[in-house]
Design a binder for these strands. Structure first.
Lengths: 226, 226
DNA sequence: TAATTATTGCACTTTCGAGTGCAGTTTCAG
DNA sequence: CTGAAACTGCACTCGAAAGTGCAATAATTA
């Protein structure tokens, strides 16, 4: 609850305007952070873009840091609502993974998010503490993959030793094919549809884990018998 | 050749000192950029740390940008010398991939590099133009994977439709298991040895591509017959 | 209407760091 | 030894942006 005016306590009066302006400020900040990054974002510009005095901005958010964190939390929530992998026993596994990939692509095609991701990533690398909350959500998604795998294993549709590990691998494949290329600007998706590289990654993943352990063609296994 | 003193032309005199100091400045800048990131790096600090006057620093490198680029180029060269995947027909494929993974891990365990990677990544996201040269090398490595795959295919040890695509997938797996976790600070390697997740990723990769196309267990193939 | 709280405008302080100008000193090749 | 080129020290300019103080004003609700 940081970043709320101190006057909040006691009877609340004159709060209608406040709520609307607060939203405007959050939206404006989001735009500003998106296009400028964290360090170059300008608090005067945020205030102006929200049609609010700078002083008001500082009444709501005591510092740039607090404002940034507020943005991050909001966006992280939005995303986790959209891009999740949920297990369904009534649909082909491939379809479920494809669905997830499509959702991710859609997210990356939305400049509104993409730019903000870049900002957050840059800041996370520069100053991890600043960005904690966003990343918490992010890693949760990773363990969402593990849950999905576990469910599929329980259904005897996959054969996996370590669900978390398999989840990481799926995550690597999706990030490598969708997220990083978008963020690092190597490629942009023309549509929401899957392309051949992504299909191939999903193929590989399913092929490997659709086969019982001892049938997998591996050499040189050096791992605890777990 | 940017960032060299203008006085260079004509007969060269008094250059012995110059070369040594130049090196000292590069080393100092590297340290400074590593620990502080690009924006927070302080040119006064660089000069001090190189035991050189600020004016001399600016005589060699007309701006912070130029200095940063110079560092990037040097480091990119060092890295591409160390972490490459070279095809050998006299060794198991698995061993070759493992070698590469081990080299990558070694790189990530070297704080000297790791910190600089973080800085470069942050800047690339913030300001891609600044970092071009480093990334050029980076993507070259990616196509190095494709070359390796092609060679293995020519040797009939792998069965791959599109070598570049397979190379990307291998890259995704390695980055997902080694590079990103290190850079984003989720895990650090205790030793240079491979761990189970990396082994499993390599297993998966080899398993999938060791089998002729039509034998692969895939559903729902939707791709050009290429 | 009266009391309360939010909002505004604007000038102000502070901090910080990149890059410059210049006069004097050092170094080294020839 | 000599003179060109490289180096030094230091004060300086310039700009930018975060955050503050305050007195005046507007909006809200009882």
């Amino acid at each position: 609850m940081e970043g709320w005016p101190k006057q909040q306590s006691g009877r609340m009066r004159g709060r209608r305007v406040s709520a609307a302006k607060r939203l405007a400020m959050l939206e404006a900040a989001r735009r500003e952070f998106s296009v400028s990054g964290y360090l170059n974002a300008n608090m005067d510009a945020v205030a102006a873009s929200a049609s609010v005095s700078k002083r008001t901005l500082y009444n709501h958010f005591p510092s740039k840091e607090v404002l940034f964190r507020a943005i991050i939390v909001r966006v992280a929530e939005e995303i986790s609502r959209v891009a999740t992998l949920r297990y369904r026993n009534d649909a082909p596994l491939r379809e479920q993974l494809e669905q997830y990939a499509i959702q991710s692509i859609r997210l990356m095609r939305d400049a509104r998010y993409l730019q903000l991701f870049r900002t957050v990533l840059a800041e996370h690398v520069r100053n991890p503490a600043l960005v904690e909350p966003a990343l918490a959500t992010y890693w949760k998604a990773e363990y969402g993959f593990a849950d999905w795998v576990r469910a599929a294993v329980a259904d005897r549709r996959l054969f996996v030793r370590d669900a978390v590990r398999a989840g990481h691998i799926f995550g690597s494949l999706m990030r490598g094919a969708i997220i990083w290329p978008s963020i690092l600007g190597r490629s942009s998706f023309k549509s929401d549809r899957l392309n051949a590289p992504i299909n191939e990654a999903i193929d590989m993943f399913l092929a490997y884990y659709s086969v019982p352990e001892r049938a997998k063609p591996q050499r040189n296994r050096a791992r605890p018998a777990s």
